[in-house]
C-alpha cells in the first residue's frame, strides 16, 4: 500500500469507471435495440408485393413501390444539381480564392446552411419554390429544397479531399504549362474523387432519411408513373418519399406498414454507411 509504484485507489474512480461502461453500453445497446426491433417488427410486413405494389383501397393492396420511385427521383434530381455546385464551390474556395472577406463570408454561409434545421428548409422551400416559383407541391420543389440542405455536406467533403492533394501535383502541372482549369479537370478532381464520392454518398443518405423538409414541399402521393410521358411529368407532381409515407402511416395507426418501411429505410441507410466505410478504406489503402 505504501509503495510508490502502486497508485492509491480512489472509490470515486471505480464509480466513474462504472458510469463510463454503463454509458458506452447504453449507446451500443441503443443501436442494436433499434436495429433488432425494426427487423423483427418489420420483417412480417415486407414481402415482394409490399415492395413492388402500390397502396390501393380499391384492390385492398398495400405497397410502397410508388414511394421508392419518388425517393429515387428526389435523390437523382437533387444530386444532379447539388454535386456540381458543391464541388464547384469547394474548388473555388480551395484553388481560386485568396483569404479575405469573400472567403470568410462563403465559409460562414456554408456553416450556417449546415446548421439550419430541415423544417426551416421545408418552410423556405414551400414559400420560395412552391409559391413564388409556382412549382406547388412537387418532386422538383422537394429536390430544390434538398439541394440547399446537402450543399454544405458536399462542399465540405470536397474541400477536405482537395486539401489532401499534395501541392507538388499543382506545381508539377503548372510547371508543365497547363492552365488552371486544365489542371483542376485532369489532376485535382480525379485525385480528389474518393472524397467527392464519399460526400455524395453521405448526401444520398441524408436525402433518404429526410422528412421534415419534404413534408411541405414534395407532398405525399404514392402513385407510380404508368407511361413514358408520365415519367417526365411526374417531376411536377407531388410525390411522398419513404420517410413521409412512414410518418403518414404511423399517424394513421398503420404500424405494420410503418415498420415495413422502417425496415426498408434501415437497410438502405446501413448499406450507404457500409459503402462509405468501404470506399474510404479502399482509397486509403490505394494511397499508401
Amino acid at each position: 500500500m505504501n509503495s510508490i509504484c502502486v497508485k492509491k485507489r480512489h472509490p470515486s474512480d471505480t464509480l466513474l469507471y462504472i458510469a463510463i461502461y454503463v454509458c458506452a453500453g447504453f449507446s451500443v445497446a441503443l443501436l442494436l435495440g433499434i436495429i433488432l426491433y425494426v427487423l423483427v417488427k418489420g420483417f412480417r410486413c415486407v414481402s415482394w408485393d409490399f415492395l413492388t405494389g402500390v397502396t390501393s383501397v380499391l384492390n385492398g393492396t398495400v405497397g410502397i413501390a410508388g414511394n421508392i420511385v419518388n425517393t429515387l427521383y428526389i435523390i437523382v434530381i437533387t444530386m444532379l444539381i447539388a454535386t456540381p455546385i458543391g464541388v464547384g464551390a469547394a474548388v473555388y474556395l480551395n484553388e481560386y480564392a485568396k483569404p479575405g472577406r469573400l472567403v470568410r463570408a462563403i465559409e460562414f454561409a456554408t456553416e450556417t446552411l449546415s446548421g439550419i434545421p430541415s423544417i426551416i428548409f421545408g418552410l423556405f422551400g414551400m414559400m420560395f419554390f412552391g409559391q413564388t416559383l409556382h412549382l406547388k407541391y412537387s418532386i422538383l420543389t422537394g429536390s430544390f429544397t434538398l439541394v440547399l440542405m446537402v450543399l454544405p455536406l458536399i462542399t465540405r467533403n470536397t474541400q477536405e479531399a482537395l486539401k489532401t492533394v499534395p501541392d507538388s501535383y499543382r506545381s508539377g502541372a503548372v510547371g508543365l504549362g497547363t492552365g488552371k482549369w486544365y489542371m483542376i479537370r485532369t489532376i485535382l478532381l480525379p485525385s480528389a474523387m474518393p472524397g467527392i464520392i464519399t460526400g455524395a454518398i453521405l448526401a444520398v443518405g441524408r436525402i433518404v432519411g429526410e422528412s421534415a423538409a419534404l413534408l411541405f414541399t414534395a407532398g405525399s402521393s404514392g402513385l407510380l408513373p404508368k407511361t413514358a410521358m408520365d415519367m417526365l411529368e411526374k417531376t411536377f407532381e407531388p410525390g411522398g418519399t419513404l420517410t413521409i409515407q412512414l410518418y403518414l402511416s404511423a399517424s394513421k395507426g398503420e404500424f405494420e406498414v410503418a415498420f415495413g418501411i422502417a425496415l426498408v429505410l434501415l437497410v438502405i441507410v446501413l448499406l450507404i454507411n457500409f459503402a462509405t466505410k468501404a470506399l474510404a478504406k479502399h482509397f486509403n489503402v490505394n494511397k499508401e
Binding site: 443501436l31 425494426v38 446501413l270
Partner: peptide, 12 residues
C-alpha cells in the same frame, strides 16, 4: 456503431 446512430432517419 455510434456513427450509425446518426444515420438513422428521425422518423424511425
Amino acid at each position: 456503431a455510434v456513427e450509425l446512430l446518426a444515420a438513422i432517419p428521425s422518423v424511425i
